[in-house]
């Protein structure tokens, strides 16, 4: 499947005749019918005596337009080069995986449909989780343990016809996943929704929720989230809060428990091309009543809009602190 899709895209790209236009950071446009993009990222982290450097990502993106239909794909190679204190050998390995592939149909502003493997359309972070787009090196807890990052199924979205600037998303998966190994939580059964009020490009609030079955841990998750972002003077604020109820299907001591997590992030440009970011993450788990608190401080230097170099310090309350760094480019 992966090889056939990849071969088709390569064939389509090189057989397509038309005007070419490339801008560094905005991809290659061919005759307004085909777009190609790419990004890379390199990461480093250090915790106590452990450290790791890795060439984390190379991704190839494409979008083909035909009338009101479009076909989007993203192929990604992860962990291409890894050198760490815990491994004996450094290694190189490049193998592209399907990260996203979906067919979209745009009927009108109120009704659009996607079929395939897409980013689960929830909240703020999940939609921009790659290194070149996010402000920090690390991800908040929200993004890893409350819903799967990817869904293979159907997504219906658009604006409500009667209420301007209110957007809805509905998605469902009742089938096997495309590339099931490449997801934070594995599921073949998920249903979810989101309603978002847009005040401006920099100001929105939303609510979302869903139910899914996690295959590996054999648990049923029900989750509900709230999120929002705004800009006040030169400060960009964003926040997400999620509550999840997890019910185990196995015979265990704690059959049902809940967890709540949140983050609050502040971004402020401090010099011409340098931003300071502060993020506070929290998680409370009712099964063992433990809580996690993380304070993240990042400097993000953007010499150009598509290049990001970050240095980060993370304070953990009960663990060693992390020092992280990354370099990412959109092509």
């Amino acid at each position: 499947m992966r090889k056939i899709t990849f071969a088709f895209l390569l064939f389509y790209t090189f057989s397509y005749g038309g005007d070419l236009f490339y801008q560094f950071g905005r991809g290659l446009n061919i005759d307004n019918h085909l777009w190609l993009g790419s990004y890379i990222s390199i990461n480093y982290w250090k915790k106590g005596s452990e450290n790791e450097i890795k060439f984390d990502d190379i991704a190839l993106l494409s979008k083909i337009f035909f009338g009101k239909f479009s076909l989007f794909s993203e192929f990604e190679a992860n962990n291409i080069y890894v050198s760490s204190s815990s491994r004996k050998n450094k290694y190189w390995d490049i193998e592209f995986e399907i990260e996203r592939i979906f067919l979209s149909y745009h009927y009108n502003d109120f009704f659009n449909i996607k079929i395939g493997r897409f980013l689960t359309p929830l909240g703020i972070w999940n939609k921009i989780h790659i290194d070149a787009l996010k402000w920090t090196v690390s991800d908040p807890l929200v993004s890893t343990a409350f819903f799967p990052m990817f869904t293979t199924g159907i997504n219906i979205n658009g604006y409500f016809p009667t209420k301007e600037n209110i957007k809805y998303e509905f998605f469902i998966q009742k089938n096997k996943s495309i590339n099931s190994s490449y997801n934070n939580l594995k599921t073949e059964d998920i249903i979810g929704f989101q309603v978002e009020k847009l005040f401006d490009v920099n100001k929105k609030i939303g609510i979302n929720g869903g139910i899914f079955e996690e295959e590996k841990a054999q648990e049923e998750y029900k989750f509900l989230g709230l999120y929002g972002k705004t800009k006040i003077k030169s400060f960009f604020f964003s926040s997400e809060v999620y509550y999840a109820n997890e019910k185990s299907k196995k015979k265990v001591k704690h059959k049902e428990y809940g967890k709540i997590t949140y983050y609050l992030q502040l971004v402020k440009r401090i010099f011409n091309k340098t931003y300071f970011i502060f993020r506070k993450d929290g998680l409370y788990d009712t099964s063992d009543k433990h809580h996690v608190d993380i304070w993240t401080f990042t400097l993000n230097f953007r010499p150009r809009f598509n290049i990001s170099f970050k240095v980060e310090y993370q304070f953990y309350e009960r663990k060693d602190d992390y020092i992280r760094s990354s370099f990412a480019v959109l092509f």
Binding site: G27, N29, L61, I128
Partner: peptide, 19 residues
């Protein structure tokens, strides 16, 4: 600055700024 941030996020959906 706001436009750059906006179009970076759109890039990830395969949407690019006007020609």
């Amino acid at each position: 600055e706001e436009l750059n941030i906006y179009w970076n996020e759109k890039y990830y959906e395969g949407v690019v700024p006007p020609i």
